[in-house]
């Protein structure tokens, strides 16, 4: 794998205005309220790799995905795709960039228009970007269906005639139809049963090998992430707390939150490993704790954690933002 960066995200921040309507605010004398879904998120994705973002609810992982593909506008920060800064307001230039990235969604029952035939669904990107015409479109749709393990005769059917796994295959065929280089996969298998999940994960891997695709995988499932990705970013309450190579993250997690997440995964191997009890719940993102947002649940909490936000510090294969990790490093250097 080359070190060539395909996507670079810098200081990505997104705030949502969740204030009550103007009239209510005046009557109740309430302030405007904001929810910070993401704050100062920066990472790079190299060409051909799978970069995963894991996190629980409220971590803002889907918000990042939506900002990258232009479904949401960032409140601050920049996104560079293959050296071009993404500016979704500019028409013509963006059109050229748009063809090169695609998205696969979580819910295969909502991601296909129920009133469209499968063929039309898959052909929509082809028509939108004007890639092919007439009979060529039909042939290409047939080829794509074949590629994802369906038959070209399925083009004439409607989505409700398919199972969840087959629908996800259709969604993948649609994503592939504009011949993209980069695909954002937002929880692509969390709505599927495990046996079907395995099919879709295998298919995604095969397609990556065949077309040299780059994936951004958004997931809450650590085992899926472990299986699929090269590098992993862990999000907690909208901030990236740790980034590491996949293997390193699972064998030697740095951030206490990463460790907690790993401990929470049920152990299928029945190794008898006694898990450390996980404590506490994710705070309300409208009103996050000061300092390090993880401090109320952290076993390693120190005074400084309650006051100042930890800055990212380099680790063996990435970085982690934690005062305790920093203190440990300082000790080992001494």
């Amino acid at each position: 794998m080359s070190g060539d960066v395909l996507l670079r995200v810098e200081g990505l921040t997104r705030r949502f205005d969740i204030s009550k309507p103007w009239l209510n605010r005046v009557v109740e004398r309430a302030q405007k309220q904001y929810l910070t879904a993401n704050a100062d998120v920066s990472f790079e994705i190299r060409r051909g790799e799978t970069f995963a973002l894991v996190g629980e609810s409220g971590s803002g992982k889907s918000t990042i995905a939506k900002m990258i593909v232009g479904l949401l506008e960032p409140s601050a920060g920049r996104i560079h795709f293959d050296g071009h800064e993404m500016d979704f307001a500019s028409g013509a230039e963006m059109r050229k960039l748009r063809r090169r990235f695609q998205m696969i969604f979580q819910d295969p029952f909502a991601s296909l228009n129920p009133r469209w035939r499968v063929g039309d669904i898959i052909a929509e990107p082809i028509h939108t970007f004007g890639l092919l015409k007439g009979a060529e479109v039909t042939r290409e749709v047939g080829r794509l269906l074949d590629l994802v393990g369906l038959s070209s005769a399925d083009a004439g059917k409607f989505p409700h005639e398919f199972s969840g796994g087959q629908r996800q295959r259709i969604a993948i065929a649609r994503a592939l139809s504009s011949k993209p280089e980069f695909i954002v996969c937002d929880e692509p298998t969390s709505a599927l049963d495990v046996s079907v999940q395995a099919q879709i994960l295998n298919l995604m891997r095969d397609l990556q090998d065949e077309f040299g695709l780059t994936y951004l995988l958004i997931s809450h499932d650590l085992s899926v992430v472990r299986h699929m990705s090269n590098r992993i970013g862990v999000l907690y309450l909208g901030r990236l707390v740790e980034v590491a190579e996949a293997r390193a993250l699972f064998t030697d997690p740095q951030h206490p939150y990463t460790r907690m997440l790993l401990d929470a995964v049920p152990d299928l191997a029945l190794s008898g490993r006694r898990r450390r009890p996980v404590t506490g719940e994710i705070p309300n993102p409208i009103d996050p704790p000061p300092g390090c947002a993880f401090h109320p649940r952290c076993p390693l909490v120190m005074d400084v954690c309650r006051q100042t936000l930890p800055q990212p510090r380099a680790t063996a294969s990435g970085h982690a933002s934690c005062h305790a990790v920093a203190a440990q490093d300082a000790l080992s250097v001494d």
């Binding site: 909502a110 929509e124 990107p125 969604a171």
Partner: peptide, 13 residues
């Protein structure tokens, strides 16, 4: 808010 509409928006329809 359904994903099929988002899929269309992603490709700039």
């Amino acid at each position: 808010s359904k994903e099929y509409v988002q899929a269309a928006r992603v490709i700039g329809v």
